[in-house]
Computed example of a mutant assay.
Amino acid sequence: MQHFLPSDPSPHELGFRMPAEWEPHAATWMSWPADDDLWFGHLDGVREEFAGLVRTIARFEPVELLVRDAESEENARARLAGADVTYHRLPLDDVWLRDNGPIFVRRGDELAFVNWRFNSWGGKFSWEHDDQVPEYVARVLWAAHWDRPEVLEGGGLEVNGLGTGLTTRSCFLTDTRNPGLSEEGYGALLHDTLGVSRLLWLDGGLENDHTDGHIDTITRFTDERTIVTSVESNPADPNHAVMQNNLEALRQMTDQDGRQFRIVELPLPASRLEGAEGRLPPTYANFYIGNGFVVVPMYGDPNDARALEVLRPLFPEREVIGLPSRKIIEGGGSFHCVTQQQPRGTVWTGK
């Protein structure tokens, strides 16, 4: 396999691009929860919800599961017996593989990836082990990849696979990620590395989101020209104004070909959830799209059923499945945050 440096030809120059999530997968990569302190004493419940998620995904495509130690592997194997899961033992800090894992790019049938730096959303938690995960994946797959000096988390970027990307200023423009990198600078960077020709910016995300407002917690592409975006109906809720501003901005935006999007409103959970560190950021937008399925986090909330009603018509060829995420959200994220798709393709070694 070959390591490419920033001075080497970029993925875009070599014809690679980041595919949309709904394009066919070879597998889903995940990490198994292991640290009871990080889950505020709820690790057993978190693992139960994780097992339900992994088993559901494994019905449709293989799962590559990272496990921290012997106890984690034994626990995962017991809960996932019979599922299409491959286990990988390596040191881990946490489970948010969307953010610390590789971001795959494809050229025709050839597959490689970009290895960004990960610093735990601006140094909020430990990250040294998780930052090494892409190099491990490279060794497993023998995949060529580009090592970038910039910090970038997968949950901070949405793409439609045709050249349009979505992100938030509240996340990308923090001074704890890439100080001095402007909107224009990000546009050039993501064009060169992921093939994003048009980068669209929303202002912010959910209250008390430790990612500083990842786009995948509020606003998602469901196809090349359809965007589903979270809305808060209660004007007194701090999320109301931010979500409304996002909605109005999206209605004015156009794609890489200058066409307006179809915008669909998705309710946030009706009930306010509190965790050990204040308000939690539950959202239905943190769904994960795979081969023939979409898994949507559920919270035992009055809006759970309504969220599924909104999403099912947007994925007519996929089974839209609601699964419990009440324990997982205690860690600050949900299903999209803990998954990373490996697109289908022949792994390119760079030769």
Rank of each mutant, 00 (worst) to 15 (best):
F293L: 12
L206K: 04
E128M: 13
V294E: 00
R326K: 15
T346N: 09
D147A: 14
W22F: 10
P33W: 04
N75D: 15
S10P: 06
G205A: 06
L202G: 00
P302D: 11
G333T: 02
W121L: 01
P269H: 07
E317A: 14
L314A: 08
E128C: 06
P19V: 07
G41Y: 14
D237P: 04
D94H: 05
R318Y: 01
P19Q: 12
T229H: 00
H240L: 09
H240P: 05
G333K: 00
R306C: 11
P102L: 01
H25N: 04
C337Q: 02
A270W: 06
E309W: 13
E183L: 11
S31A: 14
E183I: 09
G332C: 11
G165S: 10
A249N: 07
K351F: 06
E248C: 08
H210W: 14
D216N: 10
L206S: 04
L194A: 03
N291L: 09
L190F: 11
D304G: 02
P316T: 08
P316E: 11
R47Y: 06
L200T: 00
P19T: 12
A70Y: 10
F40S: 05
E153N: 08
S230H: 11
R198K: 15
M253P: 06
T176V: 15
S230R: 10
A112F: 03
E61I: 08
P24K: 14
D223F: 00
D8L: 05
P62T: 04
M30E: 05
H42Q: 14
R251S: 05
V242C: 12
T346R: 14
H3S: 12
N234A: 13
M243D: 00
P62F: 04
E49W: 07
L90W: 11
N246S: 13
I329V: 15
T28C: 15
R177V: 02
L5F: 15
Q252K: 15
L173V: 05
H145V: 09
G204K: 03
P235R: 10
W127T: 02
E158D: 09
D69T: 11
R272E: 13
L173W: 02
V196C: 05
E184W: 14
Y136T: 07
R107S: 06
D93L: 08
E265G: 07
K327V: 06
E64A: 10
E71Q: 15
S271D: 14
I218T: 14
H210Q: 13
V46D: 00
G185Q: 12
R79F: 06
Q340N: 07
D109W: 09
W127K: 05
V114A: 07
D223V: 07
P102S: 11
E277W: 07
G350W: 04
A76I: 13
Q2T: 12
A285S: 11
P302G: 07
D36N: 15
W201S: 01
G101Y: 00
A138G: 03
F315H: 09
L65Q: 01
P6R: 14
H3M: 15
E330S: 11
V196D: 02
L14T: 02
W348S: 03
P267G: 07
V231Q: 11
L308K: 13
V228F: 03
D109G: 08
A20L: 12
P297K: 06
E319K: 13
A305H: 13
T168P: 05
D209E: 15
R262E: 14
G155L: 06
D223Q: 11
